[in-house]
Design a protein around this nucleic acid. Structure first.
Lengths: 150, 150
DNA sequence: ATAAATGCATACCAAAAAGGTGTACAATGA
DNA sequence: TCATTGTACACCTTTTTGGTATGCATTTAT
């Protein structure tokens, strides 16, 4: 159903929260802020930590801290940290295998999906955590002018 | 995982096949061409028929026929015939309810997702069955120049 | 040292969605 | 009138999603 997962959605929200805090925050507080259970927050935070988006600190007064500048951290990175590389079709999973069509050049849909995938990728990349947190920014400014991939 | 369903993928392929045939084709032949079981093809074809994309004919020598001009039938319509309206986030499902955030204007992600959704919609709309079938068209021509939604 | 506070790793589970099948029926046309 | 086709709908199985449980490892305050 071409849909972002709840987990990735939470991940973006969590990054926004951490960007606003600018300090180490415990998982329980993050979970409360993001309206998600602590267990689930921990699972998400571990994935973000694994990709170098957040740093984790153990022990008393430990927690997580955003490891990146809010304006350099984009939504694509966060989504891919949770869901893996963005591929809108099985067709794009492996370079040498199209759905029911082994010859890549014979599968026009492969090219079509590849193009849509690029467009989606580019646009997620343009939305940064900084922009999401900036309440003064207008909807149209979120992705900026569309780049033509040509 | 932000992915087109296999069913929608088949649906597009089936429309491409029907566009090339230009005649009434039985479900069994369609299924064979699309490399899918007949039962599943029938399910897909019924959805396409329900949306007026194909017409169905019962009885001996019955089958399905594309009810639209290949150049006017775009991939968005086919996907939506199968999966329903394109909504990349739960956030967009109902106008008055954002995930864990009842006040729409407080949910920046709502706006971000809305914008991404529009971009995706526009681009799927630009890919027609005619273009997919036209072997002389280049990858870059598939969606044409990107429109800025501004 | 040691206890409390925290994160880590892994396995597990339930619900939902995706992908697909079975059965019985209805319409058509040769 | 019967073979051929589609229709309707309920059902099933597998995969993905969303989330939990358990036990362990690390850190810091005291």
């Amino acid at each position: 159903m071409i849909r972002i997962t709840q987990e990735a959605d939470y991940a973006v929200r969590i990054c926004c929260i951490l960007a606003r805090c600018q300090k180490t925050v415990g998982a329980s507080e993050i979970a409360r802020e993001a309206c998600v259970t602590q267990k689930f927050a921990l699972k998400i935070l571990r994935k973000l930590a694994g990709c170098g988006i957040v740093s984790s600190y153990k022990g008393a007064f430990g927690g997580y801290r955003l490891d990146r500048n809010a304006d350099d951290l984009n939504v694509l990175e966060i989504i891919e940290a949770i869901e893996g590389p963005l591929k809108i079709s099985k067709c794009l999973d492996c370079d040498h295998e199209c759905t029911k069509n082994p010859v890549k050049d014979d599968c026009k849909m492969h090219h079509a999906f590849m193009r849509i995938n690029d467009i989606l990728t580019e646009n997620f990349k343009m939305i940064t955590v900084g922009k999401l947190n900036d309440r003064s920014i207008s909807v149209d400014d979120l992705t900026g002018y569309m780049k033509n991939t040509e």
